[in-house]
Amino acid sequence: MISSWLFIILAVLATFAPSILATDYVVGDDKGWTINFDYQAWARGKMLFVGDNLVFNYPKGVHNVYKVNGTGFQECSAPLDSVPLTSGKDVINLATSGRKWYICGVSRHCLDAGQKLAITVFPSSFAPSPSPTSEKSDRKFSAPSPSPTWGYSN
């Protein structure tokens, strides 16, 4: 009887542990998703893992968020068939590892004002164990040297 309860408890913990350990990253911190902000500097030193969330905060109707590929990021262009996020509090769950790119598609915000973000998402198996004294939003580490088997591409 005790072993069946233990199994149930472990099964529940295994199901919910990734979401409990997930971190929400507010893109741009207090500045939010805006123009004339260095998002590459903001992302530098942050370790984002599968299961974490990006939160894009901005005044609704002023900006938007497109997920693009590396070429779209470099050229500040979204595919014609893609639909932007426009709520002003867009949450993107980082469900897979690898390189991710986001741009603002309003006017020339990306091209002229640098409103674009490139990140690398690491597999959740690389996530450090949380320490009792650390806050989830302060998770910053030096990136490990990528293994040749990761195969990330730009």
Rank of each mutant, 00 (worst) to 15 (best):
P18T: 15
R44A: 10
T34V: 08
T23N: 01
V121A: 01
C110Q: 03
A113Y: 08
T133C: 12
F16M: 09
V65T: 05
G45F: 05
S124C: 09
K89A: 09
W42A: 15
G98F: 00
S107Y: 06
T86F: 03
Q74I: 08
G28T: 10
A113V: 13
L21Q: 00
V50R: 00
K116T: 15
S137W: 03
C104Q: 04
V55E: 02
S131R: 13
F56W: 13
G28N: 05
V50F: 00
S97H: 04
N57L: 04
A22E: 15
N64I: 07
W33L: 06
T96A: 13
A113F: 07
G32M: 14
L85E: 14
V27C: 05
G105M: 06
T15R: 09
K67H: 04
A127I: 08
F122D: 00
G72F: 03
F122P: 01
I119D: 04
T15V: 09
D112A: 09
S124F: 14
R44G: 04
S87D: 07
R44Y: 08
P59M: 05
T120H: 09
L54V: 04
K116Y: 11
Y25M: 00
L80I: 12
I119S: 02
A118V: 13
N36P: 09
G51S: 14
D52H: 04
V65D: 06
V91A: 11
D24N: 11
A95N: 13
S107V: 12
F37Y: 07
D38E: 06
G114N: 13
D38K: 10
M47F: 15
D38H: 13
D29A: 12
N93E: 00
V121I: 08
G114F: 13
P79A: 14
F16C: 00
P18F: 14
N57K: 12
A95R: 02
F37G: 00
F37V: 09
P128I: 12
A78D: 02
A127D: 07
D112F: 11
Y66M: 01
F126S: 11
Q40Y: 11
P123G: 06
N57H: 10
C104K: 04
Y39M: 02
V83E: 04
N64T: 12
S19N: 12
K100R: 11
Y66S: 10
L117Q: 05
F56I: 15
S107G: 14
G28R: 00
C104H: 13
G28D: 02
V62E: 05
S107W: 08
C110Y: 05
P128L: 15
L54C: 13
V55C: 11
K116S: 08
G61E: 15
F16P: 10
L54K: 00
C76D: 03
T15D: 14
S129Q: 09
V26L: 06
D81K: 08
T96R: 15
Q74E: 06
A41G: 07
K136C: 07
P128K: 03
G105R: 03
V91N: 14
T133Y: 06
V83L: 08
A113N: 04
C76A: 12
P18N: 14
C110W: 03
L111I: 09
F122L: 13
F56P: 02
K116G: 15
F16A: 13
